[in-house]
Simulated assay, not measured.
Amino acid sequence: MTEVCGVVLAAGEGRRLRPLTEAVPKALCPVGNLPLLDHALRRLTGLGLIGPEQVAVNAAYLADQVVRHATGRTHLSVEPDGPLGTSGGVARLRKWIDGRGVLVGNADAYLADPLREPGKDIAALLAGWSGDTVRLLTKPCRPGETGGFSGNRFAGFSLIPWRYVAVLKDQQADLVGTVWRPAEAEGALELIGYEGHYLDTGTPALYLEANLHAAGTGLADPSAEVTGVAVESVIGAGARVAGSVTRCVVWPGATVAAGETLTDVIRAPGGLTVPVG
């Protein structure tokens, strides 16, 4: 099989998640008490892609936080003038990719397959790959959803041959325009269905939904202090819940005071509360 490396795209500003992302990059927002970036890296590890020789992460918005988080575990590519988009981010890594195929994942993609461990759940992307086609991980489009690819929508990961990477320009652009659609027009696009649960966590509502899916009936970090009531919620490390939370995400270090009742919100440190409605 063609040699493959992995890239996790973590440069985005997460504008739709503001104000949560005003101080924390989207890639480091926790889902199920694990940063989104770590979910993606764990998935690559499950495929045998480990360390700076095989895995790269790009960063731009609040890049210092991403760099600190991923240093030593990945090759890092910082975009100093702001995010270059999914295509520009990969193009900037061309020298590091160096002739290999590249498995590109979006840090904000939440995937979970109850029947397969992370990595094994997307192994079909690599199985039998010739190294010549572009492959997209997909889910069927929702009723009324437009766009997509032959009735399917992108589900967080794509596999790209070196011949496409080699001609990408180091400028603002997205893979849908520079790689996916051209490959589709050439008859070189393969769609690989994902059998698990997929969410783009780009909005507060979807971010909360991903957390609640990860939590099941509820999830609390061992260092959290819960003296109140927590129902179907995710409670982060060092968080303190003395009030009542239902279907909420309480970030690490955040507090819900006695007498507070929260439902369907994200609570961050400093009392920041983001409703999903």
Results as ranks from 00 to 15, higher is better:
residue 4 V to M: 12
residue 5 C to P: 00
residue 6 G to Y: 03
residue 7 V to S: 05
residue 10 A to R: 00
residue 10 A to V: 02
residue 11 A to F: 12
residue 15 R to D: 12
residue 17 L to D: 00
residue 19 P to H: 05
residue 20 L to Q: 04
residue 21 T to N: 06
residue 24 V to C: 10
residue 24 V to E: 10
residue 24 V to K: 04
residue 26 K to M: 14
residue 26 K to P: 07
residue 26 K to Y: 00
residue 35 P to Q: 05
residue 36 L to A: 08
residue 36 L to H: 05
residue 36 L to E: 04
residue 39 H to I: 10
residue 40 A to G: 11
residue 40 A to Y: 02
residue 42 R to P: 04
residue 43 R to Y: 07
residue 45 T to M: 10
residue 51 G to Y: 00
residue 53 E to D: 15
residue 54 Q to L: 15
residue 55 V to H: 02
residue 56 A to G: 15
residue 57 V to T: 02
residue 57 V to M: 06
residue 59 A to R: 05
residue 62 L to S: 03
residue 62 L to H: 15
residue 64 D to F: 08
residue 66 V to E: 05
residue 67 V to S: 05
residue 68 R to P: 04
residue 68 R to Q: 13
residue 69 H to I: 03
residue 69 H to K: 08
residue 70 A to E: 03
residue 70 A to P: 03
residue 72 G to S: 06
residue 73 R to Y: 13
residue 76 L to P: 13
residue 77 S to R: 11
residue 77 S to C: 14
residue 79 E to W: 12
residue 82 G to P: 00
residue 83 P to M: 11
residue 84 L to T: 03
residue 88 G to Y: 00
residue 88 G to R: 00
residue 89 G to K: 03
residue 90 V to R: 01
residue 93 L to R: 04
residue 95 K to L: 14
residue 97 I to T: 04
residue 100 R to C: 06
residue 101 G to H: 04
residue 101 G to F: 04
residue 104 V to G: 00
residue 104 V to Q: 01
residue 106 N to V: 10
residue 106 N to K: 11
residue 109 A to T: 11
residue 110 Y to W: 12
residue 111 L to I: 11
residue 111 L to E: 01
residue 115 L to P: 08
residue 117 E to C: 09
residue 121 D to F: 03
residue 127 A to Q: 09
residue 130 S to G: 13
residue 132 D to L: 14
residue 133 T to G: 08
residue 135 R to N: 01
residue 135 R to L: 02
residue 137 L to I: 08
residue 142 R to C: 09
residue 142 R to G: 06
residue 147 G to V: 13
residue 149 F to V: 08
residue 151 G to Y: 03
residue 151 G to V: 10
residue 154 F to M: 08
residue 157 F to S: 01
residue 161 P to D: 00
residue 161 P to G: 06
residue 162 W to L: 07
residue 163 R to F: 11
residue 169 K to L: 13
residue 169 K to N: 12
residue 170 D to F: 01
residue 173 A to E: 09
residue 174 D to L: 13
residue 176 V to E: 14
residue 176 V to L: 09
residue 183 A to K: 01
residue 184 E to I: 04
residue 187 G to W: 14
residue 191 L to C: 01
residue 191 L to M: 02
residue 192 I to R: 05
residue 195 E to D: 15
residue 196 G to Q: 08
residue 196 G to K: 07
residue 197 H to Y: 15
residue 198 Y to G: 10
residue 198 Y to Q: 08
residue 198 Y to W: 15
residue 201 T to E: 09
residue 202 G to S: 13
residue 205 A to I: 03
residue 209 E to R: 15
residue 210 A to L: 07
residue 210 A to V: 01
residue 210 A to K: 04
residue 211 N to F: 08
residue 212 L to P: 03
residue 214 A to W: 05
residue 215 A to S: 07
residue 217 T to N: 11
residue 220 A to R: 12
residue 221 D to K: 02
residue 225 E to G: 11
residue 225 E to P: 08
residue 231 V to L: 14
residue 232 E to R: 15
residue 234 V to F: 13
residue 240 R to T: 15
residue 242 A to K: 15
residue 242 A to R: 15
residue 243 G to N: 07
residue 245 V to L: 06
residue 251 W to V: 11
residue 252 P to V: 11
residue 252 P to W: 12
residue 254 A to F: 09
residue 256 V to P: 01
residue 256 V to D: 07
residue 257 A to G: 12
residue 257 A to V: 14
residue 258 A to C: 10
residue 263 T to K: 13
residue 264 D to V: 03
residue 265 V to C: 10
residue 267 R to F: 05
residue 271 G to D: 06
residue 272 L to A: 09
residue 273 T to A: 03
residue 274 V to G: 08
residue 274 V to N: 07
residue 276 V to N: 04
